[in-house]
Design a protein around this nucleic acid. Structure first.
Length: 914
DNA sequence: CTCTCCCGCCACCCG
DNA sequence: CGGGTGGCGGGAGAG
């Protein structure tokens, strides 16, 4: 009997017994927990947690084992919910999407469905192998335990761009426990991250988190080194030769004159702040070195595609290993490990290169390409350019301000875009697909939605994480402690796999873009520096990022806010909830006048209170979205209406009438640059390459998010395009120098000046009132109008603050679960073509993202609130639920064995679409 | 079958 | 020496 076995083990080693026990659970709880819903997890959780108390564990006796289940049962009753579970429930209740997801999960893991599964499982185990087998069957798939997924969870714990002031330390033990994996796995992740200087070893078991601030620099250095190494030549050589593994003669290349590889020292780009402690200590850093070299290969590659075999060969050669087949295999394994992490970082994505021999696994670099200069290239939408834009044209423009905080936003945006692109490419059925070639806006819209989601996800994660981090060992098993939000969020986190960053648009791209769209010249939008120097990052827009729809044929630019991760200063969620949350947005605009919000409110008396607020908060923080839509005349009815989940109220921008003039406000607001993403980026570079299906990607998309941006269609009369800026989020940075600061995107729309004349510039501060938690310097001054200098006198800048939209005011009730699924953002390609905006709830991509859209009357004249439709969707943050399982104690890894794996959750989010 | 890559043994080192 | 690290490759899931 199992019991007996346990007993023996126990006798031998108490710990062992525990392990066994754990394993048993593991069959169910641990591994399966991964999938378990929070709600379901609750019952199980206690079990795991119990083990937390090691002292008890030791005591475990065989007899106890059987008992344990009982206890668990009791516990379930007694403590039906853990905080996390509770939260999850609430969320689930609030969010239909979540429920759907949960359902899927359940389907995925039937076992989990039973509340008493745990108990049963245990019994089964005791009973016999058959039971075990069943469990085995239900065990999470390999993918669910993949390093990539784990890495995502890991990354979700930390802000991509942590404030300089916040130094985050990573405790390997803690992380391993919290993620429920063996420490060994964490090393794999950390080593790769370290190679990119995202983290550095501080001490035993301790790593410091640096975030991506220095990533561009690191990449630049790697690129340089790669060039010095002539990797490109080597790659070309190998590819050309098409050498077979077996045939490949190592060392040949050197003869050919390839330079020797450099010393294996990990490149130290570390900044003063983060001295790379003892990086040198380890003699063997091969994974790190390999990672750097691998990255170099991408950076020097013209195609940005590297096949694993070539990479492995080069690495083997450099490592001076004996070139045998087993080495090759090993190298490839390592490359996969590295690739998983890099994918999680959205730096690369899996592709296949078709060659004579057939398909070869390869990866394509999707990370930033131009990191040569300090910051991302900003594209200014200059006034001069604007006029040139044709209304017909469409494209995406991202306005960014260089804000430290926001930088990641652009990244997110990119990822989202990429994701979408992939999806489009990979999904024949995708409605957007058709649009692609032409760079149709529909695609972009999709991307926007995706981006938006992404933002939300990111934010939420970040916040959650942040909060978690802040606390004492969050990882603690203490049941009282909320599940590591991170893990929960992680599900929705950016999927590395999913996220494919789109290269930042350069001027060239922009031009190209304009060409496509009929735009001429560049678009430069420079906003006065947005920054206020608020360190706290408050989610500015969130609440209602309003979407303004102005019927006009021109280009739409949607810009979402983005925000950096959690800001330390930011108030608690609760504070942010509701309108208060919006305040931050205003802050972001900082100098910019916030007052506008009021206008919106007036227009739409909103009722707030939406539960969604919380979610939104999280969401709104994210990155900015930029969307450009081709003009669609009238309608777009659907557009406006539904928002998805989170969609906050749409604010009726319509109201904005008025004053078109924008004083220098802009400057005050901050500088914004517009980045454009070339649609082309999305396309596969080479015909040979097949983009892998982004099955994973879906996850992120699910999340609904609020859109904070203004959707403006140029009035019929407008020739130019308008840029709509959403004021929602302004990052407050305290003075980061622009160089380092990530570009910050400010939602804004550039409106063709002349035509817009009738439209006043609206600036809606996120919060009408004072910002709740944030002491932002900015205050709502009231509606403001500013003109973009660059745009020319005629151009109008509309800034839509998050606040503008009132959640409740929205005509549509987001409450309807069904509606939630649909986002206004979801524009079906069809719509775009027809010029009518249609929502496609079905579109996978969009589902779940709340978007609020306000329709403005077509008439150039300011729309009245009535005319406009506002929809709000409440977005709740969908948390995957709590994830967490308690962590097992890693140390016992041996013992734990299977159990350890249990922790990993898999989420395969189906995209909404699925 | 190939592609992936999880898993965890066990060698290395450091303190 | 014990424990943190992490190389390494068997072997199995996924396609």
């Amino acid at each position: 009997m199992e019991v007996n076995c346990l007993t023996l083990k126990d006798l031998i080693n108490p710990r062992q017994s525990r392990l066994d026990f754990a394993i048993e659970d593991g069959e169910n709880a641990q591994k399966e927990n991964i999938f378990v819903d929070r709600s379901r997890m609750a019952p199980k959780t206690p079990i795991k947690n119990e083990p937390i108390d090691l002292s008890k564990q030791k005591i475990f006796t065989p007899e106890r084992n059987p008992i344990t289940p009982v206890k668990l049962v009791d516990r379930q009753q007694a403590e039906p919910w853990t905080p996390t579970a509770n939260l999850k429930m609430l969320i689930s209740a609030a969010s239909p999407d979540i429920r759907d997801r949960e359902k899927k999960k359940e389907l995925f893991r039937p076992i989990e469905n039973k509340d008493n599964a745990f108990t049963n499982s245990i019994q089964l185990v005791v009973v016999g192998n058959s039971a075990v087998d069943e469990f085995e069957k239900q065990r999470p798939s390999r993918k669910q335990k993949s390093l990539g997924l784990l890495c995502q969870k890991f990354l979700a714990r930390y802000p991509s761009y942590p404030l300089s002031t916040e130094k985050t330390t990573i405790s390997l033990d803690e992380v391993a426990i919290s993620l429920g994996v063996e420490r060994r796995r964490i090393y794999d992740i950390v080593n790769v991250l370290e190679s990119l200087h995202l983290v550095s070893r501080v001490a035993k078991n301790q790593y410091g988190w640096h975030g991506r601030h220095s990533l561009p620099k690191t990449l630049r250095n790697l690129q340089r080194l790669g060039e010095e190494q002539k990797y490109e030549e080597q790659m070309a050589y190998l590819q050309q030769k098409e050498l077979d593994l077996m045939d490949y003669k190592f060392g040949e290349r050197k003869k050919d004159g390839y330079p020797e590889s450099q010393d294996p020292q990990l490149l130290d780009f570390s900044e003063p702040d983060y001295p790379s402690s003892s990086a040198n200590s380890r003699k063997d850093k091969s994974l790190r070195i390999m990672s750097q070299k691998f990255v170099m290969l991408f950076l020097v590659s013209k195609t940005k595609i590297v096949t694993l075999d070539v990479a492995a060969k080069i690495l083997i050669e450099e490592s001076q290993d004996t070139p045998d087949h087993s080495k090759f295999k090993t190298k490839v394994r390592r490359l996969y490990d590295i690739a998983n992490v890099l994918t999680s970082l959205a730096l690369i994505k899996k592709v296949h290169v078709t060659e004579e021999r057939g398909r070869k696994p390869a990866f394509k670099w999707i990370g930033p390409v131009d990191f040569g200069s300090s910051d991302e290239e900003l594209v200014d939408v200059s006034a001069s350019v604007l006029p040139e834009l044709k209304r017909e044209t469409y494209g995406k423009i991202q306005v960014c301000a260089k804000q430290k905080l926001t930088r990641h936003c652009s990244f997110n945006t990119i990822q989202a875009s990429e994701r979408i692109q992939r999806r489009v490419n990979s999904e024949p059925s995708s409605p957007y697909r058709e649009e692609q070639g032409s760079g149709g806006y529909s695609l972009e819209i999709g991307s926007l939605a995706a981006i938006y989601r992404q933002k939300i996800e990111d934010n939420s994660q970040g916040k959650a994480l942040a909060s978690k981090r802040v606390g004492p060992s969050s990882s603690s098993l203490d049941p009282a402690v909320p599940f590591p939000v991170l893990s929960v969020d992680s599900e929705y986190c950016v999927n590395p796999g999913l996220a494919h960053p789109v290269l930042p648009v350069t001027q060239t791209d922009l031009q190209a873009f304009s060409g496509q769209n009929g735009l001429n010249g560049q678009v430069n939008v420079s906003l006065a520096s947005v920054a206020s120097a608020v360190e706290s990052l408050k989610p500015a827009l969130l609440a209602g990022q309003p979407l303004v729809y102005i019927p006009s044929p021109s280009l739409f630019m949607l810009y979402g806010n983005l925000q950096e991760g959690p800001s330390p200063g930011s108030g608690s969620w609760s504070e942010k909830d509701g309108r208060s949350s919006e305040a931050p947005a205003a802050a972001e605009l900082s100098s910019a006048p916030l007052a506008q919000k009021r206008l919106c409110e007036e227009r739409k008396p909103e009722e707030e209170g939406e539960p969604a607020m919380k979610r939104q908060r999280r969401e709104y923080e994210d990155s900015p979205l930029s969307l450009v839509m081709p003009k669609k005349p009238s309608d777009s009815t659907d557009f406006s209406s539904p928002k998805t989940l989170g969609g906050r109220a749409s604010t009726p921008l319509e109201d904005a009438h008025g004053n078109s003039q924008l004083p220098a406000a802009k400057e005050a607001s901050g500088k914004a640059a517009a980045n454009c993403f070339a649609s082309s980026e999305w396309e596969n570079p080479s015909g040979n390459i097949d983009v892998e299906k982004p099955s994973k990607e879906n996850e992120s998309t699910k999340e609904s998010s609020l859109l904070q941006y203004l959707y403006v269609q140029s009035p019929a009369g407008l020739n130019g395009f308008n840029v709509l800026l959403s004021g929602s989020q302004t990052p407050h940075t305290v003075g980061p120098s622009s160089g380092q600061l990530p570009s910050f995107s400010v939602p804004c729309m550039v409106l063709p000046s002349s035509t817009l004349a009738p439209f006043p510039v609206l600036y809606s501060p996120a919060m009408p009132g004072p910002v709740s938690s944030t002491p932002s310097a900015l205050q709502n001054t009231g509606p403001m109008n500013f003109s973009l200098p660059g745009l020319g006198s005629t151009a109008h800048l509309v800034v839509g603050p998050a606040a503008m939209v009132n959640p409740k005011s929205s005509t549509l009730a987001s409450a309807d679960p069904q509606l939630q699924g649909q986002l206004s953002l979801n524009l079906s390609p069809v719509m775009s073509r027809s010029n009518n905006v249609i929502q496609q709830p079905e579109s996978p991509i969009y589902v779940g993202h709340p978007v609020s859209v306000v329709k403005l009357e077509q008439s150039p004249v300011p729309v009245t609130p009535k005319s406009t439709r506002c929809t709000q969707c409440e977005t709740f943050f969908k948390t995957p639920g709590s994830l967490g399982d308690p962590a097992l104690k890693r140390r016992e890894r041996n013992q734990l064995g299977n159990a350890s794996s249990a922790q990993r959750r898999l989420e395969i989010p189906s995209d909404g679409a699925d």
